[in-house]
Design a protein around this nucleic acid. Structure first.
Length: 433
DNA sequence: TCTGGGGTCCTAGGACCC
DNA sequence: TCTGGGGTCCTAGGACCC
């Protein structure tokens, strides 16, 4: 059996954990640059505020209702996520961190010791709540897809008290019949429209499809697996997160600028800063990258005809996680992409082609300090330590710094509604007394 | 005026190589 | 001048997920 633990309205719940007076009020959290709504409380949802709604469209509604609007605070959310996941990892045999606010648990063999499983799941919920003040819902079922579906129902019906266990064919049948096909994990907008057009309305209808039919209509083997999982046959294993972290195949840092930029110098600053952040994440997971991609975008909502994005990829002869080295490559790529007279609203740096740093870098028989690569690695280690100790970007590439007499670099985004990072920044700790 | 960011997997066409 | 197929790399984009 698998469990899916999903935090309710995670970002809003994180904010409420530190500001109890937000309890019971309509609250929304905005995306980077205060662009659109990415988390909302039940009260905000009840006002008709849609997920992903652009902020500027909400202004009239916000004038009528006292909604609390908050900029996103990822330092806080990441830290809260680590606490939730660390507890789950201690309480279940095996955990897969699926996203910042969701985890799959492998419960195989657990039913013998914890019967019924619903009580075990309620215990998890209560303990996560007690330790972190984050409310959760839990779905338990024989496959990941059914666990997702159970979770959805547990969220929807308050009478279930946040837990639904699908441990018999009859319970699975009943659950499948209640979920619209569009709400099945792996069915997005396109497939939902197609399935509805063919008269398949619920997950139960989808579960009755043949393997061959699913292959033909739902993207080949991917769709076939989806249907099998709904039928109760596991096709997706748990991708175990051994040490509570997730090793990625690719890493990106991409941002929309605070305002449109044209000057190559400004873009160079943004790309330097973004490369820095991507390289930090790369070192944090202990990888080196062989492939670097840079893209710059023009406003996709504006009058410019597509394409809005130009990208270029560079394959590096030697894998690296060294910030200045990667930034040098990124600047060379940027120079190929940038065109005079155009305005850009967004840029990104993507790292790919990972490998663990090889033994070649250890140079067993050379004096350690004598190898340039090792010196470079030590320098990055110091840099990461300083930034962890004194705050992100305390030590930064010169190219990423603001110009003289400028408070912030020109690419920096807007965060007008930011709350303090209570748990991760020395300057923003609670003051008691 | 103002519309996020970070992932995975897959496909297709052109360039280039053998 | 005609004749072929397989493979990789790069760019672009689409589908899905959170």
């Amino acid at each position: 059996m698998y469990a899916l633990v999903d935090c309710n309205n995670f970002y809003v719940s994180c904010e409420r954990a530190f500001q109890p007076r937000l309890e019971g009020l309509p609250v929304v959290v905005l995306s980077n640059n205060d662009g659109c709504v990415i988390s909302r409380s039940a009260e905000a949802k009840a006002l008709g505020i849609a997920m992903g709604a652009p902020m500027f469209q909400l202004r009239p509604l916000l004038e009528q209702h006292p909604v609390r609007v908050l900029s996103s605070n990822y330092a806080l959310y990441g830290d809260m996520s680590r606490r939730v996941m660390a507890y789950l990892a201690s309480a279940a045999p095996e955990v897969e961190i699926y996203s910042i606010d969701e985890a799959f648990l492998n419960l195989h063999g657990l039913a013998r010791f914890f019967s019924p499983l619903a009580a075990y799941a309620q215990g998890l919920r209560a303990e996560v709540q007690r330790r972190t003040h984050i409310p959760t819902c839990i779905g338990v079922a024989p496959t990941k897809t059914l666990a997702k579906l159970a979770n959805r129902l547990a969220k929807k019906y308050p009478s279930l008290d946040g837990v639904l266990v699908l441990d018999s064919p009859a319970r699975i049948r009943r659950a499948l019949a209640q979920v619209p096909v569009a709400d099945v994990w792996g069915v997005g907008r396109q497939y939902a429209a197609k399935l509805q057009g063919l008269g398949l309305a619920t997950a139960a209808d989808l579960a009755r499809c043949s393997d061959a039919w699913a292959r033909q209509h739902l993207g080949g083997v991917v769709g076939a697996r989806l249907v099998r999982e709904l039928q109760g046959f596991p096709c997706h294993q748990l991708a175990s997160s051994e040490d509570g972290t997730l090793a990625r195949q690719s890493l990106a840092h991409t941002r929309t600028f605070g305002r449109p930029l044209s000057r190559l110098d400004d873009l160079r600053g943004a790309v330097a800063a973004f490369t820095s952040r991507a390289a930090e994440k790369l070192r944090a997971q202990g990888s080196v990258a062989h492939v670097l991609t840079v893209f710059i975008s023009q406003n996709r909502f504006g009058p410019n005809p597509p394409p809005h994005t130009r990208s270029a990829q560079l394959t590096l002869p030697t894998g690296t996680s060294h910030t200045p080295e990667l930034a040098g490559h990124a600047h060379a790529v940027l120079a190929r992409l940038w065109q005079a007279g155009r305005t850009y609203t967004k840029a990104g740096v993507i790292l790919d082609g990972f490998e663990r740093p090889g033994p070649a870098q250890l140079h067993l028989f050379a004096p350690p300090a004598a190898t340039p690569r090792l010196q470079a690695a030590a320098l990055m280690q110091q840099l990461d330590r300083l930034n962890a100790r004194y705050g992100a970007a305390t030590v930064q590439l010169a190219a990423a710094l603001p110009a003289k007499n400028q408070p912030a670099p020109p690419w920096q985004g807007q965060h007008q509604h930011r709350t303090p990072a209570r748990t991760t920044s020395w300057d923003e700790l609670w003051e008691i007394g």
